[in-house]
Simulated scan of single mutants.
Amino acid sequence: MPESRIMEHQQPRAPLAERDSGGPPAPDWFTAALARAPERILVPVADARIETLIWGERGRPGLLFLHGNGAHADWWSFIAPFFADDYRVAAMSWSGMGGSDRRPHYTLDLFVQEILEVAQAAGLFDQGLPTVVGHSFGGTPLIACAARHGERLKAAVVVDTPIMSPQVRRERRARRGEPREPRAHQIYPTLEAALARFRFQPPQPCEHPYIADHIGRTSLRQQPCGGYSWRFDPFMWKDYRRGNPTIDLPGVRCPVALMYGEKSSFLDDGIVDYTRSIAPPGTPIMMIAEAHHHIMVDQPLAFVSSLRTLLAAWPGPGGLIRPGA
């Protein structure tokens, strides 16, 4: 499911369409978080270099953040520093997204391999097993990794990943109709013109334009011929090979927690009830108030506080947790 893609026909108001040349003002917490610049490395995984951002000292417990479809590691660069005093933290860009290399073909198996090899290269195994947090699409290979290699993970936190029953999946596919044929990115003449077209997908409001500005700027690359275009591979899903098994939530072999935005557009069709019914017994389910699908954008400090609270008391017995309630 695409996320930071530019879908010009789906959302009437672009969050940066009326931005001024200096960019929107940002609060002190955000500026301070970005000031804690990460180490940036490229980790080779199956003939592709995977962009990896790292905070915190080696020898601390490992924590890895996985982004959603069309996004990139810098979606976490204002979140990860909050954990860097206690963890060795990393955020990666999937192959075909962000600053990672593109591949001729993409598979779920390769994405699972990227999780483990990036975690190893970033030093996240230096102090026991790492915890991995995956948002939206990022939760899909995370669940597959937890099912296949759960003995190598301390825990998995799946953030607003829609896990649908076969019936709901068929109904949604029928409503969408035939997928649109992929095409090359448009090249915008200026950075400002490109930022004006940035939209979140699925469509949602954005009350923090400084976050949208940061994400939009880091989603673009300047082209050799001039102009700017988006960094993700527009053709990556054309021949995507999901493999078998796909999502095996009941079969995960490490503790797993689920986090949702209470206003997420993915929470219809009984998705939470279905996910709860197939999740391992005792799985914590967290609802973040006033958050849409992109929880780290809508409620960044609530997301940080909720994740801190979860990691401080879990893995362990779970239940329904509503931070701030």
Rank of each mutant, 00 (worst) to 15 (best):
G128P: 07
R180D: 14
E262Q: 13
D269L: 11
T275Q: 09
T246I: 15
N69A: 15
W237Q: 13
I247S: 05
I187K: 08
E8V: 13
G226S: 05
F111E: 15
R197L: 01
M7H: 09
F232N: 07
Y210A: 01
F303P: 02
R308L: 12
L53P: 07
W314D: 05
C254Y: 04
H105V: 11
T218R: 12
E192R: 10
R276T: 13
A279K: 08
I187C: 12
Y87M: 06
A121N: 09
A144V: 00
D47C: 05
S4C: 15
I50W: 07
R19T: 08
P234K: 08
P255E: 07
A156R: 07
L42G: 14
R175D: 12
L320W: 08
P284W: 11
D239L: 11
Y87S: 01
M286G: 00
F83I: 06
R40P: 05
D239F: 06
H105D: 10
P38T: 04
Y260T: 03
I54N: 02
Q223D: 14
E290F: 07
R180C: 04
A279E: 06
T131A: 10
P25E: 09
S265T: 14
T161R: 00
D47V: 01
H135Q: 11
E178S: 13
S264I: 09
I79N: 00
F82R: 13
G318K: 00
G70W: 02
L258I: 12
S306V: 09
G139T: 03
T218Y: 04
Y274Q: 08
A194Q: 08
H214V: 02
G68V: 05
G251S: 12
F200P: 05
A312F: 02
A84K: 08
T140V: 15
M286E: 06
D86K: 03
R172Q: 13
G134A: 10
P61G: 08
G282D: 04
D269H: 14
V304A: 09
I278T: 05
S219N: 10
L34R: 11
I187R: 12
V159W: 05
L142P: 01
V118K: 00
D101C: 00
R60Y: 03
V89S: 03
V43T: 07
W75Q: 10
A46T: 09
P81H: 02
L320H: 10
A146K: 00
G318E: 03
H105W: 00
I278Q: 04
A122W: 09
T107Q: 05
T107H: 08
G270V: 01
P2N: 10
Q10K: 06
T190D: 12
A32Y: 03
A212S: 03
F232H: 14
H72P: 05
F78M: 04
A84W: 04
F303R: 03
F125T: 12
H214N: 06
I50Y: 07
H292S: 10
Q223F: 01
P179Q: 05
M287W: 06
P234E: 10
S77K: 02
M287L: 13
M164K: 13
C145F: 01
Q120T: 15
R40T: 15
V45C: 02
